[in-house]
Amino acid sequence: MQVTVTVNGEEHTSEVEPRLLLVHYLRDHLGLTGTHWGCDTTNCGACTVWLDGVPVKSCTVLTAMASGHEVRTVESLEVDGVLDPVQQGFMQEHGLQCGFCTPGMMMTARRLLDDVPDPSEQQIREGISGNLCRCTGYENIVRAVRWAAEHPATEEAPA
């Protein structure tokens, strides 16, 4: 079947099988491998992307369901060489170890901060509770999101 999906502002029309999951469409058809394919069971959240502005686990969304809709992936966070504050926060606070959960964590965190610009530690912990870090690096991930909250987008990227 033919699908047309807007990904990071760019419209893509492709011929796909109805059973193709969105995570594989993004990675294998569009080459956007920033979205990680993890547990495949809707648990780990590594594949989190935005569908019409809402974080979803793309291993449990059909590409067909996304047709006619807007998807945003981790590749969209950096604009013209300037990292999103969430990306800067993960860098500043060492919010990643192996990095596997990071794309999903950052997409969830970006939405959380858009909704709640100054979240408490508890709100951050609840907000990322659908994203698992197998390195158990949660302390620094929470600090990274707090860093981003304290350094909103207008600021210069740190040297």
């Binding site: 809707t42 959240g45 989190t48 809402v54 974080p55 979803v56 686990k57 449990t60 969304v61 969830t108 609840e126 907000g127 509770s129 659908g130 994203n131």
Partner: peptide, 9 residues
Amino acid sequence: IADPIVRNR
């Protein structure tokens, strides 16, 4: 019920 991302859907 599940987690916030699952609850979105």
